[in-house]
Nucleic acid binder design. Structure first.
Lengths: 341, 341
DNA sequence: CTGTTAGCGCCTTCAC
DNA sequence: GTGAAGGCGCTAACAG
């Protein structure tokens, strides 16, 4: 005996409520939206019936009529990436805190289309409603209020929240340099992404400030993944004069780098220091606990949502770019350079 | 100069498309839904106009009329819990793979209501559409096709996917017993949850099978959190005759237990073995890497979604309970008991 | 094959 | 204060 679905509770509409309460649908509507001009006892009665029948108004119908939903859409291609999951937590927190309604995200049938199409589809899917984008592109005529988290390019007139990538990398480098390191390898992220570029620039700036001549061999390019992190580190370690420390453009590459070091018989932090970027939760548990720069991703999600909601409610948002301060989190993956050159 | 939202793309409807293509709205609708009986060139023309105008149909209107959406709702109270995040990954994967449309989850304004109300609200929000629930209660008249992941109680006529909790705990215990452990502490999860009960039963069964007399002092009850894991372990360790191994009802408590052991000056695995349950990603990185029983949470999410979609499409689903096999993942948190009693 | 006609459930004037 | 009527954008009969 299998289960199939019997459409129960099928259509309990405002009509039903109206009938049961002995009023008209418009009155029910008024009660539903807490309009001012309803007689107290009418109000009570209708509320009673609503509760009794377990009525809940249909989002579809409502938003069809009123041209807006309380729905916040989320465009997020990939649920594997810890960064995005963190951001989502923040978004969720904000939605709860700000008493907003719902968050929706998609994939599936839209996957073959371009990002632009996808977003468009998305907007109308939710009835002209609002969107938080996370990943890459964000540059085509805005079809809806929109704020981007860590967009890959400057979008002058589009709301965004990013980390202070340059400063973050710079700080991490200063830490390493203070520890006595001079040959510091860099494992970059996808060069098409702004944040990766900025982190690289932070690396270079730090070198310049410390009067260390940059060595192109020390700069490798990955794609933010653990595997490329491993590959890059391997290349770095097989250099004639290998680095004594590595800074990676994100935590996953940093983990990859540690794995590579271990595979090459070097221990972290004793034989080599490694610092990451992001501070995703898992790296606090890693052995060794990873020193990294925290960019408060959860908070980025929260702030983005706040901005979006403000935008939706018609407030004029002044700062269209929120830069989240970063902070170095010192754990166990770095050591002062002893002896050596 | 701040940004405010100019409602662009405001109302490009099927009417517009129809007009531009010189056909009627119903034809547009037919094209949109890839109905069979449309003349090839009419089809092409309409498709062309659709692309040109960047038209996308309104979910609201569509679902209002057709009484169903391609939306899968997800009821998930908490985004902090790694278990749920894992499940969500699986759901997302399934949605992508099965070319489904959208997944939505909520919180916010509904938070003050009961779970029943919440779900109800939810159903009508999505226009009678479909729901995957994750957390606790699942027992009131189903208002929509629904499948539960790891529900807290047997729901005879409701679709569900669970792990083989009993067998899982049993297997872990056998492993520990084979390692020579005789005094094995148990850190339970919320006793109101079925999965916690089953794991406890697995523990007890293993003891019985091995002919070890159960000791009530060795059984502690937490709530699946890291902190209670720590507390329980602490209590266990301060026993006159403390356990040589601990099995925790989930990974977070296991981590807590390791922390407690460390705080008490005992090293894991050398002085005490610990095994967890769930195999959430972070514990692979933990120091020591946690031995745990994998319940393939991601796959549970995937399977649940498959079941749901099958249900939606009117297929009769035979097995209304899918039991995901579990598997012991041996890592570094356990050691054979040496010497001792 | 395609157009016409009705609503889906709700909100919003506009009368009373 | 409340009811009646019209329409949001779309799909589902029914005609042609």
């Amino acid at each position: 005996m299998g289960i199939s679905h019997a459409r129960s509770n099928k259509g309990i509409t405002s009509q039903d409520v109206a009938r049961a309460a002995g009023v008209s649908v418009s009155t029910v509507s008024r009660v539903l939206n807490d309009k001012d001009d309803v007689a107290p006892d009418t109000y009570q009665k209708v509320r009673g019936v609503i509760a009794e029948l377990g009525y809940a108004s249909s989002l579809a119908a409502k938003s069809l009529r009123s041209r807006r939903t309380g729905v916040i859409g989320l465009i997020m291609p990939d649920l594997e990436d810890p960064f995005r999951i963190q951001a989502m937590k923040g978004i969720h927190q904000a939605i709860v805190a700000l008493d907003y309604d719902l968050i929706a995200f998609t994939s599936g049938s839209i996957k073959k289309h371009s990002k632009a199409e996808r977003e468009q589809h998305y907007v109308s899917l939710l009835n002209g409603s609002l969107i938080v984008v996370t990943p890459a592109a964000t540059s085509f005529p805005a079809a809806a209020p929109r704020v981007a988290i860590d967009p890959n390019s400057q979008c002058p007139d589009c709301l965004a929240v990013t980390a202070t990538n340059h400063v973050g990398a710079l700080t991490a480098m200063e830490y390493l340099i203070n520890l006595g390191h001079r040959r510091i390898g860099f494992i970059g992220g996808r060069p098409d992404l702004l944040c990766a570029q900025q982190r690289l620039q932070g690396y270079e700036t730090a070198l310049r400030q410390a009067g260390i001549a940059p060595d192109p061999d020390l700069i490798t390019i990955g794609d933010f993944s653990r595997t490329t992190g491993r590959d890059c580190a391997q290349r770095l370690l097989s250099l004639a004069e290998p680095p004594t420390a590595i800074i990676a453009a994100n935590d996953q590459s940093a983990i990859g780098a540690i794995e590579a070091a271990r595979a090459a018989g070097r221990r972290v932090p004793d034989d080599m220091s490694v610092v990451g970027f992001d501070n995703i939760p898992e790296v606090a548990y890693y052995d060794p606990a990873l020193t990294t720069v925290d960019q408060f991703i959860v908070k980025m999600g929260y702030v983005a949502t706040e901005m979006l909601i403000r935008l939706i409610q018609g407030e004029r948002v002044e700062n269209n770019l929120y830069e989240m301060p970063t902070q170095l989190v010192v754990r166990d993956s770095c050591r002062a350079l002893k002896g050596g050159d």
